[in-house]
Nucleic acid binder design. Structure first.
Lengths: 343, 343
DNA sequence: TCAATTTTCCAAAGCGCTTTGGATATCTCT
DNA sequence: AGAGATATCCAAAGCGCTTTGGAAAATTGA
């Protein structure tokens, strides 16, 4: 069923039917009702492609998911993020189109989306330091919004980020106040922007308390259970082992806990742990009482909100880019406690 | 840059340029080269929408991700699955469009995709027992392929599935051969088709060895770390605790291990564990030596392959639906060992 | 009652591509 | 050299929608 057939069925012109369906005023309430009724009956929906051609809009947003070509790893937060974004799109009649692409071909993909006019805008995932995608998109003139930020980018752009710096600074402070002096940082990959900010927050807290950072206690890498386990195991074997560990993801925190318990130590007593918690749907941090003390910020909410920002930016292109900085909650769970006394 | 402008630039007709770019024979090698060169120089790509309108194809595949409205949970395997599927689409010039939808509105979404002609076909995720989506899609005439199967569906359809039944049967046999007699099953949600098949395999092995199933040792639910932990904790507290646990996902296996170790027991010695491993990129089962003995089947490969099957089916609609049944590997890791002697 | 509005509807152009049905130029063969 | 084949290109229609510029019908005002 297409517009032509529908309008013939109704004995009306395509114009009138189109207008009735799109809420234009120049059609009487009576015929509008008749048209809507018929559209429902025949299960008519305008072809996205035809509509897009006619209006010049794509009614679609692109999500370009970078995949580390080294590790072939897709970001585990990604599922929940797009679940949030998808809600927003559904509400606004937009489609989400997804490209998963290894880091090399990224520029190509953005160019393609632009020149094929496949999307009205894109969401940038996993920004790195000095991310070249941002100037690229800016130059292409393709509206975009970034989940996170990219230090070193000079052009203004729309972003939504968790205040990773302050979150990790507060977390470190909290551990300091509990008496911890040997505090380790298990960070994400160095070139990811968020990792950089988290380290800044961590270092800033150490500095504020006249603690000098120890590179033996600062790790970074992919955030897997195994890497959390391995790093913790190594660090606990040090002569001057850390009494507290700051961890970048709940997944690696599981590994941290395992290494602690394997050594016969008790988390929250012998070793304190704070992790960042993205509130992933398949990885809850406990039921009522959180297992881990955590800096918490829902990545699904972030998806919802950032999608809204992008749609806003598309709707009024003249407005300056919005930016949102979310403060993570610091929620106290069972994984932190006072630093053990030295004997 | 559009076709018209490009062809004017070249002093050729749109027809010729279009043909040159699409590999039609009725254009001389010389002009074809000239056209391709110019297209590259001007970064020309045909508008997807216009092309789609003209050809009647969408060059897009829909993925409808059901989200349990109860738990708001997105399937954690989903990221890796679409990473695989995405590879295939990229190779064939298809786009992936994603809808995340709660179970109630699903029918609507499929209808919408069909009548708006937004996609050439869809992948069905997370099939349940007697899944009504399959007859629906069949009736709509929208090509589709299912990741998994749906017991009880009578219409023929294309699917790709792991042989969950035989995998869990073999795993149970393996535990039996190690001397285990109290074997627990931590399954996924009951109404998911794969959970049903896994239980079948488990029960069939028990029956073959004259073991009668004990409902106290059979759990099912969302597969989270916490649920694995909770269930194991409870079962280990039973007077007649299991000596082996069969687990449906690596995530919940982490919880299983935690509950075991928390009780001061050693996994692989006091309690054996076998889990299913989807080979998720962010959750590796150990580096070289697997941590868990596991039934293993890469969900990313599944995505790649199933996408290919769907594109095939779209390319020749007359062919009968393909079906692929993958056998999971049974890989032996450190989590299984002979049943402990009774004292 | 009749001109001036206002409502309500329509025909046709256009969005950017593919494809049909020629037209023209170039070869081939005898 | 000239007819038939073949290679090369083009104009125009059509895909399903929106939207512009009117036209016809209904309503209003004096």
């Amino acid at each position: 069923m297409n517009l032509k057939q529908l309008s013939q069925n109704l004995g009306l012109s395509q114009t009138t039917v189109s207008r009735a369906l799109n809420g234009y005023p120049e059609v009487s309430p009576a015929t509008r009702a008749r048209v809507e009724e018929a559209a429902r009956a025949f299960n008519y929906r305008p072809s996205t492609r035809a509509k897009g051609l006619a209006t010049g809009q794509a009614l679609a947003i692109g999500h370009v998911i970078p995949m580390s070509s080294k590790h072939e790893m897709v970001n585990p937060i990604f599922g929940d993020f797009i679940a949030g974004a998808g809600e927003t799109y559904a509400r606004h009649g937009y489609e989400m189109i997804l490209s998963i692409v290894d880091d090399k071909n990224e520029a190509n993909v953005y160019q393609g989306l632009k020149s094929r006019r496949a999307v009205d805008g894109v969401i940038v995932h996993g920004p790195r330091m000095n991310d070249m995608r941002i100037p690229l998109l800016d130059q292409l003139g393709l509206p975009f919004a970034v989940h996170g930020r990219a230090s070193g980018c000079t052009v203004p752009y729309a972003w939504l980020d968790v205040n990773n710096r302050s979150a990790f600074e507060r977390a470190t402070n909290y551990l300091y106040d509990l008496g911890h002096r040997r505090i380790a940082l298990l960070n994400g990959l160095e070139d990811m922007d968020f990792a950089h900010r988290r380290r800044d927050g961590y270092l800033s807290s150490l500095a504020a308390h006249d603690l000098s950072p120890d590179t033996a206690l600062m790790r970074s890498g992919e955030m897997t259970e195994l890497s959390g386990y391995g790093a913790t195991r190594e660090m606990l074997a040090l002569p001057d082992a850390p009494t507290a560990i700051l961890c970048s993801s709940l997944i690696s925190a599981l590994g941290v806990r395992r290494a602690i318990e394997e050594k016969g130590l008790v988390m929250g007593k012998d070793v304190s742990v704070i992790t960042h918690d993205d509130v992933l749907s398949y990885l809850k941090n406990g039921d009522d009482v959180p297992i881990f003390t955590a800096t918490r910020s829902s990545v699904r909410d972030a998806g919802r909100k950032l999608a809204e920002m992008l749609l806003d930016a598309i709707a009024n292109p003249e407005a300056p880019p919005q930016t949102v900085l979310l403060e993570a909650e610091l929620i106290v769970g069972a994984s932190t406690g006072p630093a053990p006394r030295k004997d």
